[in-house]
Design a protein around this nucleic acid. Structure first.
Length: 723
DNA sequence: GGTCACTCTATTTTT
DNA sequence: TAGAGTGACC
């Protein structure tokens, strides 16, 4: 059999990774080094050369997008149906699949439903109300973090010690316990629970675990550095009998520590699995040499790396452009000007990515792009299935599928308004609590016992019969017709149609789009309940991001959402201390390193052109702030950087040890302070040098004091002390 | 039940 | 600065 197509066109390292026959294979895949390729080719190798069946392969990713891409590429490489029987999906998707197959062993009802973060939040709000917690002292958001954080680490309420009644812990635990109870009653599980249950399912049912251990001969994990404790434990359990595992990841691109990702897992891998081979993919096919040199130099400042250095056979390319803007407006002008220039230079708009640390930074950029008439698209943002109108429509469908879904009932019992006020709902909640019933059952009971006033009773009866009628009409219809009937008969369409404002029309369109989505949705062949499958998918998949995806447009996004993407030209704006690295992350060395990795991710998105910019003064949240140039820029060797403009007060600060190139830097050293230098003043206290001018006796510095704000001082008299 | 004015808060986000 | 969330009021 000719299998050369699997190995041709691979470099040596990629080939090693594809053909490794160790039990554990850790592929440290640098940015742009062809990691998806390696994963896909390795699967082909296992099947075509080593003779594994497609049935015995499990491939796990984090996002649906990555799973789809992998599936598509496997099919493209190996042809059509070989993919059948192979498990390729996200951690959550696969966990869901497992739990559906073994619901009773997992302690779940057959028809359990998924609670997304928004539903979870609402649920917790309700619990806080029930437990009479003051929202300002105990924000539901905090409980959500607490619960998810612990679940991500594999801890249930029963596992957590309240240290003898510590107020914070015991309150959080009270909420956690009640939440677990409510979820159980309603038969719903949240995202973290999906993973935790799947882990417990295997841990507590050796026979089931054994079945999967027999079945899967090889598991491949993408973006391994992003796995959390539960995900890693799940993988370890599956592979505990010596099944082979390939983990692909990059410790330098771990940027999700704040949501439970454990960079340690990648370091632990070779210790946990006997006979591990580590393969480094360091040859980069994306960026110019200068860009890679900058990235390498930057990331070298992090400790505890597994170590990796990107290189390319390609050319040096342009230097990295650095622009010092007066303020955020000036910065936005710079970006639009350069974009214009690039467009004249035959770049397409979609070749350009503009990256920022936090979403709030996009506003000014948008203003300038609109003014310049440059179409743009903001990546990320709200997911299709998270939109209010869509969630409402789905809530009706959920109730049709399962009357006991309290979250769905709460959401739409009075949307569109039908005269069921807060008082009525409160009565239902009370009744439900007392009799341990779902809201739906409580409503039925309350009606039977005539516990409501005539008016409220009529309104509630209207809702109950609406749902029953809907359910009756939808029976056995194709999915899209069910959706269509639900949003029409519920009055949602009419409700949004008479709403005013620009949003209203978009909402109606989105509802129509939902019908289209249902039409295009094909459930698995063996799916007996397409509606449930569709609802599950809606919870687990973001859906298409934006409608106007096809227009050629400049791409705006946060650095986080840029991971995995690449652009011929990249702008990273706001490279300032306090913004990037963000001030919330600066005190903790580990979080600072994560910020640095984020910068590394940003830089390595660029293929040919990279522009960095910072603003001397920036208005954020209505407050003016003066930040100095990000330390991350100072960690890039001077010779790779091209200062775009030198104005008379600000230039790039010296990286102290490096040779000075501009006259300003010479001045800086003659003054004895560089930009960004922390200094102490006898009256004003501590501050940071943000600007300077003049020399000798007339030299003045601008210092941004922590308590006093920014001041110009004559250096000779200021008596500043370097800190 | 809907509107208006006020307060509060602001890092990153997938499932 | 702006958006979301809340509470008073009609």
């Amino acid at each position: 059999m000719d299998v050369s197509y699997i190995l041709d066109d691979l470099n040596d390292a990629q080939r090693d990774a594809v053909t490794a026959d160790s039990t554990g294979t850790l592929v440290l895949a640098g940015a742009g080094s062809g990691k998806t390729r390696v994963l896909v080719h390795r699967i082909a190798w296992k099947i075509k050369v080593e003779g594994l069946s497609t049935y015995s392969i499990l491939a796990v990713t984090f996002t649906n997008k990555a799973a789809r891409e992998m599936r598509g590429r496997i099919e493209a490489l190996m042809g059509g149906n070989l993919n059948h029987g192979m498990w390729v999906g996200t951690f959550h998707g696969l966990a869901h699949r497992l739990l559906k197959a073994h619901a009773s062993e997992a302690g779940l009802p057959d028809n359990f439903q998924i609670l997304d973060s928004d539903d979870q939040f609402r649920q917790l709000k309700r619990i806080h109300r029930e437990l009479e917690l003051d929202d300002s002292r105990w924000p539901p958001r905090q409980s959500q973090y607490f619960i998810n954080g612990h679940k991500d680490e594999g801890r249930r309420a029963a596992h957590i010690d309240d240290f003898g009644g510590d107020l914070y812990l015991s309150t959080m635990l009270k909420v956690y316990r009640r939440y677990e109870e409510v979820c159980r009653q309603q038969g719903v599980i949240d995202f973290a629970e999906l993973l935790l249950r799947a882990l417990e399912l295997w841990r507590d049912n050796p026979a089931i675990l054994d079945h999967y251990q027999q079945r899967f001969k090889h598991v491949l994990v993408d973006e391994f550095q992003d796995t959390n404790a539960v995900q890693y434990a799940w993988l370890r359990l599956l592979s505990s009998k010596g099944m082979a595992m390939t983990a692909v990841g990059d410790d330098d691109q771990s940027i999700y520590g704040w949501r439970g990702a454990r960079i340690e897992n990648i370091q632990q891998f070779s210790k946990d699995i006997a006979n591990t081979q580590i393969v480094r993919l360091e040859q980069n096919y994306r960026s110019t040499n200068n860009i890679l040199k900058a990235a390498n130099a930057l990331i070298a400042n992090n400790s505890q790396r597994l170590g990796k250095e990107l290189w390319t056979e390609g050319e040096d390319g342009d230097k990295i452009a650095l622009f010092a803007a007066f303020n955020e407006q000036d910065e936005a002008r710079f970006v639009t000007d350069r974009i214009d220039e690039l467009l004249r230079d035959d770049y397409r708009r979609s070749d350009i990515g503009v990256l920022y640390r936090s979403n709030a930074q996009s506003r000014v950029l948008e203003e300038y792009l609109v003014r310049a008439g440059v179409p743009y698209r903001i990546y990320g943002g709200q997911r299709f299935y998270d939109r209010l109108e869509i969630k409402n429509a789905l809530a009706y469908l959920r109730i049709i599928a399962l009357r006991d879904d309290d979250t769905a009932i709460e959401r739409v019992i009075n949307t569109p308004t039908r005269g069921i006020g807060n008082r009525t709902v409160e009565i239902l909640r009370e009744y439900a609590r007392e009799h341990q019933l779902s809201l739906w059952r409580s409503a039925v009971a309350v009606m039977e016992n005539g516990l409501l006033t005539a008016r409220a009773g009529n309104a509630l009866r209207g809702f109950l019969s609406l749902i029953e009628e809907l359910a009756g009409e939808c029976q056995d219809l194709p999915l899209d017709e069910q959706v269509s009937i639900a949003i029409d008969r519920s009055g949602l369409i009419a409700f949004h149609e008479k709403e005013k404002g620009e949003k209203a029309q978009a909402r109606v369109e989105n509802l129509q789009e939902l019908i289209t989505a249902a039409r295009g949705y094909s459930a698995d062949d063996d799916e007996t309940e397409p509606l449930r499958a569709f609802l599950d998918q809606a919870a687990l998949d973001a859906g298409d991001q934006q409608a106007d995806e096809h227009e050629d447009s400049v791409q705006l996004m946060t650095l986080h959402s840029a991971k995995g993407l690449e652009f011929p030209a990249v702008f990273i704006v706001g490279v300032e201390e306090n913004l990037f690295p963000h001030k919330m992350s600066m005190d903790d060395p580990e979080r600072l390193e994560e910020e640095r990795r984020l910068a590394y991710v940003g830089i390595t998105r660029a293929e040919r052109k990279l522009y960095l910019s910072y603003a001397e003064s920036r208005r954020l949240h209505g407050q003016e702030s003066f930040n100095s140039l990000s330390r991350f820029v100072r960690e890039i060797p001077n010779e790779l950087i091209d200062e775009v403009r030198i104005n008379n007060t600000v230039t790039r600060p010296s990286s102290y040890a490096q040779s000075t190139t501009s006259s300003q830097q010479a001045a800086a050293s003659s003054i004895g302070f560089g930009l960004g230098q922390r200094v102490l003043h006898s009256i004003f206290g501590a501050g940071v040098v943000i600007s300077f001018e003049g020399q000798g006796a007339s030299a003045r510095v601008q210092v941004n004091f922590e308590d006093e704000g920014s001041k110009w001082l004559v250096l000779q008299y200021a008596n500043l002390q370097a800190l």
